[in-house]
Design a protein around this nucleic acid. Structure first.
Length: 282
DNA sequence: AACCATTTCAACCGCCCGCCA
DNA sequence: CTGGCGGGCGGTTGAAATGGT
């Protein structure tokens, strides 16, 4: 109630970002970093609210993002971490470098939940569905349709509440890996943030949120002062695909000029190869 | 080929929390 | 101590893509 919106939305644009907007945002953040998200759109010449800029940057434009489907290992990590942390997506994301909370949340709701159900595991409790049903589903009603529709995200509070999970038609072959607390105990070592996160980036006390990467990105344009965006059909969605990304472009620009990249200076950004092995972009 | 249903995921919304004056 | 502000988080929405008939 009474709370003011984060920005007055009059005249502000909503909806999908255009390539032009992406360009402006990236250019601005690489040049200046983000001191204050509220000020970013104004300074960057964008008709967006600061929140929208932050979201776009953290979820899509950050250079250290790893795009594409989660690897099997990452999926296991997510399942394990979800069992421990519940829907604390940002906490989970902090254990998976290059992944965003939004991405993990979406992945959980669209892929992992289904997968677990198929395996006979209740995604809410990580217990075998049959067990969960005993506890939580006294009477079976024909709710399949309804429940399938209700693959809604659970709130963390719902972890303890009565639940109505759909009864999967198949048996529940997967029971192992569930300990007595109902948590998964895959042999997946948990990776502490300090082990996985970009080493040179000062840890942000405030969050897992990967936006901390911007703390170094501002040095990019200092290091590549002559860099210019390709004028022709730049497509934002191409930015991070396998064949093209802006960081390649940066490297090429500099090497074309015969300039050596100081890797020690530019080391904080990390990428991943197709087998999810980390490597440093800079 | 056309239509409808389902799935995916980028983006938005509103609340919460920590910081600071 | 308190209230305002900014940033962050989790839940939800809806357009686009994909699949099925």
């Amino acid at each position: 109630m009474g709370r003011q919106p984060c920005c007055d939305k009059v005249g502000l644009k909503k909806g999908p970002w255009t390539a032009e907007e992406d360009k402006k945002l990236i250019n601005f953040i690489l040049t200046n970093g983000h001191c204050c998200w509220r000020a970013v759109p104004k300074l960057a010449g964008l008709l967006r609210c600061g929140k929208s800029c932050r979201l776009r940057w953290t979820n899509y434009l950050r250079p250290d993002l790893k795009r594409g489907l989660l690897s099997e290992f990452e999926e296991k990590m997510v399942i394990d971490l979800h069992a421990q942390l519940g829907n604390r997506w940002s906490k989970i994301a902090s254990h998976l470098p290059g992944r965003t909370d939004n991405e993990i949340k979406n992945n959980w709701n669209t892929h992992i939940k289904k997968k677990l159900r198929k395996m006979g595991v209740d995604p809410l409790t990580n217990k075998p569905l049959s067990t969960a049903e005993e506890y939580h589903r006294p009477q079976q009603q024909d709710q399949k349709k309804q429940d399938d529709k209700t693959m809604e995200p659970e709130t963390s509070s719902s972890l303890n509440s009565t639940m109505t999970e759909p009864k999967e038609e198949e048996d529940h072959p997967m029971v192992k890996g569930v300990d007595t607390n109902g948590f998964y105990t895959h042999e997946v070592p948990l990776i502490e943030p300090h082990e996985t996160l970009i080493p040179n980036c000062a840890p942000s006390t405030s969050s897992s949120s990967p936006s901390s990467s911007s703390c170094h990105s501002s040095m990019f344009l200092e290091e590549f002062p002559g860099f210019e965006w390709p004028s022709d059909d730049y497509n934002a969605s191409d930015l991070w695909n396998d064949d093209f990304n802006i960081w390649d472009l940066l490297i090429n620009e500099e090497s074309d000029k015969g300039m050596a990249l100081d890797l020690s200076l530019s080391s904080p950004l990390m990428g991943f190869d197709q087998d999810s092995h980390p490597y440093q972009l800079f």
